[in-house]
Design a protein around this nucleic acid. Structure first.
Length: 1049
RNA sequence: GGGCGAUUGGCGCAGUGGUAGCGCAGCAGCUUUACACGCUGUGGGUCGGGGGUUCGAAUCCCUCAUCGCCCACCA
């Protein structure tokens, strides 16, 4: 028999078994196997970016998915875990462009041109893409790799096109010139979700402008002067709030020359050249009378006076508590200002280039400058002009491009927008905590008067009919609310609220991106060549030139049609993931069997980006929710609570951790410390803990293995089992790996009830409890609870107590004349095998590699049907809690819990005595127990062993010599006779301390029991527990008092 | 401004009405024939403050404080 290494070496085990599973098609899902008796379980991976590398976040997320998938397989389900990657538009394009620039090949992607550049991205994708999928394999992810999908696969792309066309024809998609979030670094529009607000320290600049009676031609229409009534009302308003001294300091100021001046506060003085009005609140008595007049815009300074005139308008949007109560209105560069501009029909003057440098309209001073440089120059200019009044430090929130990490620029541009479909169904299907089901009103049609229909009716849209996709038609008004049984559940539940809130205030989605890498928008335009200025080839489409629009699945082949240059937002493809990966729009077997998917596991940070949109897409095209349960993980942070990030360098490489500790260790460490939905502060120590745990498991099995090898004359009946032909594939792999378990020496012998010790029954009860706890925890997605239950059961209960206790049986000398001893030994091994076999299965979802190694290495797979653990632990049956028959047959009763734990308590008390006497653990001692009742010889043997005692005497008549240590225990008084070696004073102090503690506990319980309110109202169960507790403490106190007396006497 | 989390021994965290737990770190001892990635023992917490409900509160309610996140956003 080859030696088993003392420590578990994951490196030599993991890749071997992954390959084994892969070769045996353990991961592949077959819809044909789905049946009433073999239910389907499915999960789609949140597709990582194709450029991505594995992070701890992925580890957490995918370990959970793997646990769910492996557990489902053991439950006998047909499991589909569908993997793949996302093309990640901006991220990938940026990475490739940067690489090409670095190599000096290009300065800009324009150097290559669209076609060539895309070729290079594909090349790069083929070469480097999907590294992360390889890394997931190292983690043990049991995905069906034969179904790996990519969001730009040809079939997938066809789905995206189909969906776009479908939505366009239904009127959900429209094109419009709107304020969008513009990223000046990536030179593309972004959706609202891609903008993150950051607090930024800047300044609030106060500058004054002169009021002038301008021409009335450009004044805004119909702003009446405030009536007397309003003026009065506002006067009172002002006085009531007039405690604010400062506000009085603002207001129109008339200088000695009789000119009126207004002061304006702004954070963006560089946009002054784009101002086309100043606004005041019409209810603001300070300014209302000025509405309709004009002011002189200070910049660009070189303009003639008449071109500087902009109107003073009244708009309710203006908050007269803020700043000076006068707002400069820059419709081209601020979302709110744009809306004001719309209301008052103001001119829109765009003073910036796409890269956020200032253009000619910004004037001579600012032209060509970057926006932040321009801000400084504008301030200098205002100072020069003598109009800057003050500058105060100011902190405000600025929108940043999530990806490029630069402030976004609100910008007016022509983009494609989507009015979300199936909003109400999607909103209604998520169970909202205790409030339960929210019925929905009737259907969700885009309103017929909206921009969408106007745009479309104005163009000669091709009428070629596209087939309507599978699934329900969303345009059917009055669709029924989703019945409660089909509610989707969020874990933790609180995310349902967040989801609901977002769905309530949902805004149209800007889906076009000015990028190359992505799904090209399936829209073609035919332009009127006459309308195009000579030499101009607009990169961005402009309504003025387009006369016809064609949108369909098949590209337009006609003369003069040009395809829209933009691509779609990455999430416009990701939101189809649950069904586009399964063969939609065909109604495939896969879709029929595996959709809706069972669980989705993802981070709450993409609840809007992805989860909400997938739910809407699910209803729109499948007529059904995409998942039954959504589990939101926490976010992994570093020890200081900061998010993991590349720039901080605080993100450990999971592959390093796997190499160092093993994938199982990483999985277990992470799972043990990640409570449901709470953020997780990562500490490498948790992985160390995982490794230690694997090692413990390894050695516990090694111990079992050694029993078969070491005991002479053992296993008369098992020889044949041992030599039973091992399965060919296993045998070879097993022998190849050095230092791993070898030889299927294990038999799972029959457990004979008549030979079960109390310890055996105790561990079986504990196993039963662990099975229930772990199963329960997993059913409720409480992975850390499951991991903790496993840890406690295996380490504390099985290893620390049970295995140690069995040594009383296993180390007993084997006497040929006493066959009973041998039978007891066999029986103990059979119990161990039973417990270990169950334990390995309970552990498998968490620790797939080591459990497979032990399962096959120790021969647990022998004699099992091939599809139920015979081939691999992956398909072994999930352990079931014991039923009544099992308990009856083995005479397992809950009373063994207390009985055995009392015995272990005596051991603890004895170990304490040893320490009190300061006697090293390796010195054999004589203990005496004065029992309260008769004790079985086995129990005595166990106590002796666990106390490392020279002898353990049970003597009801024992009269302790004066020089003894004594302590109370549940089974009677325990003595450590020390023949005059003890320090009487110290011992007295210790006993008095004990007595005080017991007395205090007794007082607490007595007080409770003495309270009639308590005894009358409390449940019987609790009352009995308290009474029991009282008598336990009293018994202990009596023993300690006796000890004190003996010491005195 | 609105919403949501968190606050428990030195550190990181479990624990949703019934004797405060785990891991790490600390201390003392141990080459006890599975494991030093181990074993045994041990110190350390009035569960953020205050109030309330209850026979009983870390746990339920109210309130305050601190930290964090999300949404909205006033130049």
């Amino acid at each position: 028999m080859s030696e088993i290494s003392k420590a578990y070496e994951p490196q030599s085990v993991e890749s071997k078994w992954y390959q084994f599973w892969f070769d045996h098609n353990c991961f592949t899902a077959d819809p044909a196997r789905v049946s009433d008796t073999r239910p389907a379980y499915s999960i789609v991976i949140p597709p990582p970016n194709v450029t991505g590398v594995l992070t701890l976040g992925h580890v957490l997320n995918n370990t959970i998915q793997d646990i769910l998938a492996r557990k489902a397989r053991m439950d006998g389900k047909e499991v589909l875990w569908l993997p793949g990657t996302d093309h990640a538009g901006i991220a990938t394009q940026t990475v490739v462009e940067r690489t090409l620039k670095k190599s000096g090949e290009i300065k800009h992607r324009n150097d290559l041109g669209r076609e060539k550049f895309l070729e290079r991205v594909w090349e790069w994708k083929e070469k480097h893409g999907g590294i992360i999928l390889q890394q997931l394999k190292a983690l043990g992810a049991s995905c069906d790799w034969t179904r790996t999908r990519f969001t730009m696969d040809p079939e997938y792309s066809r789905c995206v096109t189909r969906v776009f066309v479908d939505l366009y024809k239904k009127g959900y998609i429209y094109r419009g010139k709107r304020m969008v979030n513009w990223c000046p670094a990536s030179l593309t529009a972004l959706s609202d979700e891609e903008v993150i607000m950051k607090e930024q320290k800047g300044a609030l600049y106060y500058f004054k402008v002169e009021v002038a009676d301008g021409t009335s031609s450009c004044s805004s229409r119909g702003n009446e002067a405030p009536s007397d009534r309003t003026a009065e009302m506002d006067q009172s308003l002002l006085t009531s709030a007039a405690t604010n001294e400062e506000r009085r300091t603002f207001g129109p100021v008339i200088d000695h020359e009789g000119r009126t001046w207004l002061t304006i506060a702004t954070t963006r003085p560089e946009t002054i050249p784009g101002d086309t009005a100043v606004a005041v609140n019409p209810r603001d008595p300070r300014y209302a009378h000025l509405i309709g007049k004009h002011i002189l815009r200070p910049l660009p300074a070189e303009l003639p006076r008449e071109q500087k005139l902009i109107p003073i308008i009244g708009d309710e949007h203006v908050d007269f508590e803020f700043g000076t109560g006068v707002l400069k209105v820059t419709p081209a560069h601020d979302k709110a200002d744009f809306e004001i501009g719309q209301r008052h029909k103001l001119a829109v003057v765009d003073i910036m280039n796409p890269d956020a440098t200032m253009n000619d309209l910004a004037g001579a001073d600012l032209r060509g400058l970057d926006r932040f440089k321009a801000r400084k120059v504008a301030v200098e200019k205002l100072t020069e002009l003598g109009t800057l009044e003050k500058e105060e430090p100011y902190t405000n929130n600025v929108g940043y491009s999530e990806r490029a990490d630069v402030p976004i620029e609100p910008r007016l541009s022509e983009q494609w927008f989507l009015k979300y479909p199936s909003v109400q169904q999607a909103q209604a299907c998520v169970a909202l905590g205790s409030t339960g089901y929210q019925p929905v009103p009737s259907g969700n049609l885009p309103d017929g008067t909206g921009e969408a229909s106007r745009k479309q009716s104005g163009v000669a849209s091709s009428s070629s009919a596209s087939s309507i996709p599978v699934g329900g038609s969303p345009t059917g008004a009055g669709r029924l609310p989703v019945p409660p049984t089909e509610a989707m559940k969020f874990y933790p539940e609180r995310w349902a609220k967040v989801y609901d809130h977002w769905m309530t205030g949902i805004q149209d989605w800007c889906i076009s991106r000015q990028l190359w890498w992505g799904h090209r928008i399936p829209v073609w335009y035919r332009r009127d060549p006459q309308a195009l200025p000579p030499g101009k080839h607009p990169s961005n489409l402009d309504d003025a030139y387009a006369v016809e629009i064609y949108c369909d699945i098949e590209p337009s082949q006609g003369e003069g049609w040009i395809q829209d240059p933009d691509v779609l937002d990455t999430w416009f493809s990701s939101w189809l993931w649950p069904f586009a990966t399964m063969g939609w729009p065909e109604n495939t077997e896969t879709l029929k069997k595996f959709y809706p998917t069972t669980d989705l596991v993802t981070g709450p940070d993409i609840i809007f980006f992805w989860v909400a949109r997938m739910i809407m897409a699910g209803y729109e095209w499948m007529g059904e929710m995409p998942f039954r349960n959504v589990y939101f993980t926490g976010i992994i942070r570093d020890k200081q609570g900061r998010k993991m990030s590349k720039s901080l360098g605080n993100s450990p490489d999971p592959l390093d951790l796997i190499n160092q500790y093993g994938a199982d260790a990483l999985r277990f460490g992470i799972m043990r410390s990640a409570p449901q939905g709470q953020d997780l502060l990562f500490d490498e120590q948790s992985v160390e803990l995982g490794r230690n745990f694997c090692n413990k498991l390894w050695n516990a099995c090694r111990f079992r293995q050694m029993q078969s090898q070491s005991a002479p004359g053992v296993s008369p009946g098992q020889g044949s089992e041992q030599s039973s032909p091992a399965e060919n594939s296993n045998t070879s792999t097993r022998q190849d790996a050095g230092g791993t378990l070898s030889g299927g020496t294990l038999f799972e012998g029959e457990i004979r009830p008549e030979f079960l010790t109390s310890d055996d029954k105790w561990i079986l009860l504990k196993l039963d409890q662990a099975i229930r706890e772990v199963t329960d925890a997993l059913n409720n997605y409480k992975f850390n609870e499951a991991a903790n239950a496993l840890y406690r059961f295996f380490w504390s209960e099985y290893c620390d107590w049970y295995v140690e206790a069995t040594k009383a049986v296993l180390q007993a000398p084997l006497d040929p004349k006493n066959p009973r001893a041998a039978a007891r030994r066999e029986n103990t091994l059979a119990v161990m095998d039973f417990v270990l076999g169950n334990t390995l299965r309970l552990f498998h979802p968490f620790l797939p590699f080591i459990t497979e190694e032990l399962w096959q290495g120790m021969g647990f797979n022998h004699d099992l049907p091939k599809d139920q653990g015979g081939d691999t632990i992956m398909f072994a049956r999930w352990p079931k809690a014991f039923d009544a028959d099992f308990r009856d047959h083995y005479a397992i009763d809950d009373c063994y819990l207390e009985r055995v734990e009392n015995k272990y308590e005596v051991v603890r008390v004895g170990r304490n005595l040893r320490r009190e006497a300061r006697i090293a653990g390796n010195v054999k001692l004589r203990f005496v127990l004065k029992p309260l009742a008769d004790l079985p010889p086995h129990d005595i043997e166990v106590m002796k062993l666990l106390l490392n005692a020279e002898s353990f005497e049970v003597n009801p008549e024992f009269i302790a010599p004066k020089a003894s240590l004594r302590a109370a225990s549940p089974l009677g008084e325990l003595y450590l006779p020390l023949e005059g070696l003890i320090d009487v004073a110290a011992e007295r102090t210790r006993l008095e301390k004990e007595a005080a503690k017991f007395t205090a506990e007794i007082e607490k319980v007595v007080a409770k029991l003495g309270n009639p309110n308590f005894t009358q109202k409390v449940p019987q169960q609790v009352l009995r527990e308290h009474e029991q507790r009282l008598s336990d403490w009293q018994s202990k106190l009596a023993q300690v008092k006796a000890a004190l007396d003996a010491l005195a006497g």
